[in-house]
Simulated scan of single mutants.
Amino acid sequence: MTKPMQNFPTPDHDELPDDLRERIDEETERTGFTPNVFSAFGYKPSHFRAFVAYHDALVEDTELAREEIEMIVVTVSGVNDCLYCVVAHGALLRIYAEAPKLADQLATNHRSANLSPNHRAMLDFAADLTESPESIGRTDLAKLRNHGFSEEAIWDITSVVAFYNLSNRMATVADMRPNEEFYSMGR
């Protein structure tokens, strides 16, 4: 079994604060295994709490469908070459979108995927914001509006992009490893 992260020590589950153990146990029961991101982020409990709370807000208080969130995550993570997030969220995308090939397409080059014009605009924006945030302006927001995204949806898209740029960088520096289970999920 590969350690959850290679560059920092992974805390022992039994030594974590009660609230973190409870959250990890809930996730383990729900998925059948403990995603390594949970074990890794236990390294810094205050950061774990904030990370998980923001993640939960992003997926629970949004105009975006869960598959759209995962499309953004996989695209951003592909641009950032983040192995953990490409593999883990690729599995979630395959499940939520019921599309076994989509995650691989988005992770390597979202422009090669068969997408609706709305989703293409959303992912173009996500990639541009990731690669060259200084280039983003009002015309980019207008383009999303023209593709039917509301102000709130644009905020949500931007929030997911920002959060996963943070997450990708943490996973990269920690050398976080995807669980073996993620590789075959939804295929």
Rank of each mutant, 00 (worst) to 15 (best):
F33Q: 10
P35V: 05
V37T: 07
V37I: 15
V37K: 01
F38P: 08
Y43H: 15
K44P: 02
K44T: 14
S46T: 07
S46F: 06
S46A: 12
S46V: 01
S46H: 08
S46R: 05
R49K: 09
R49S: 00
D56H: 06
D56A: 10
E60Y: 04
D61L: 07
T62K: 05
A65L: 15
E67K: 15
I69F: 06
I72K: 03
I72H: 04
V73I: 15
D81K: 14
V86D: 01
V87R: 08
L92T: 14
R94N: 09
D104A: 14
D104Y: 13
Q105Y: 09
A107H: 05
A107E: 07
T108V: 15
T108N: 14
A113E: 03
N114H: 13
N114Y: 09
P117T: 10
P117C: 07
N118Y: 05
R120C: 01
A121V: 02
M122W: 02
A127W: 00
D128W: 00
L129M: 11
T130E: 03
E131K: 10
S132L: 12
P133V: 07
L141D: 03
A142E: 13
A142N: 08
S150T: 15
E152R: 15
D156E: 11
I157D: 02
S159L: 11
S159N: 15
F163I: 08
Y164I: 07
N165K: 15
M170W: 13
A171Q: 02
D175V: 04
M176V: 00
